[in-house]
Amino acid sequence: MLRTLKYQREADPEWARQVSERPGCEGLFSCLQCGACSGSCPLSIYMDLTPRRVIALVREGFRRDALSSMTIWLCASCYSCAANCPRQIHVTDLMYSLKREAIRSRLYPPRLPAPILAQEFYAMVRKHGRNSEFWLVLRMALRSNPLLLLTMLRNGWDLVRTGRLSLRRERIHGTSELVALSGAGPRPGRAEA
């Protein structure tokens, strides 16, 4: 639960400084708190914290509040905030950075579909080089809430009927090249996150 009262001793200014050094997050401390990001965000009305408030929490160093907010999972990366910021802060990149840290630190509800989708997508692409839409959605549903599959039946049938659902497992030939691309290939001996 988010409290309105905050204690200085709970803040971690060092973390805030680290965030501001990540690519795309440099503008963190130049934020005016004007709210252009929240005002232009089409999803802010569904968020527990608006983007402006997330920025305020991050730069004061309230790590846990910022990382466990639903805001980062509601962000659809439409870049409206970034395009409208008078200080040219890359708010979307900041949201990405928070998503990555929240996933690494497991600070999200365990069955929340958005971070599960990201993890499954990542594992699939790391292994095969490409994403196969059908298998991705199936894996996301199985890990988050299998009942979701029932609600997807109608959509699935529409896609089958119009020839838009492919059951093929896409993969590239050059998976060995992916390994050589040190960062992007499967890491041997390590379970895929």
């Binding site: 950075s97 989708l117 692409v125």
Partner: peptide
């Protein structure tokens, strides 16, 4: 032999 562009979901794990 193109591969995934690295879109939104991938970017959310490892930039």
């Amino acid at each position: 032999d193109w591969n995934c562009c690295g879109a939104t979901s991938y970017m959310s794990i490892d930039e």
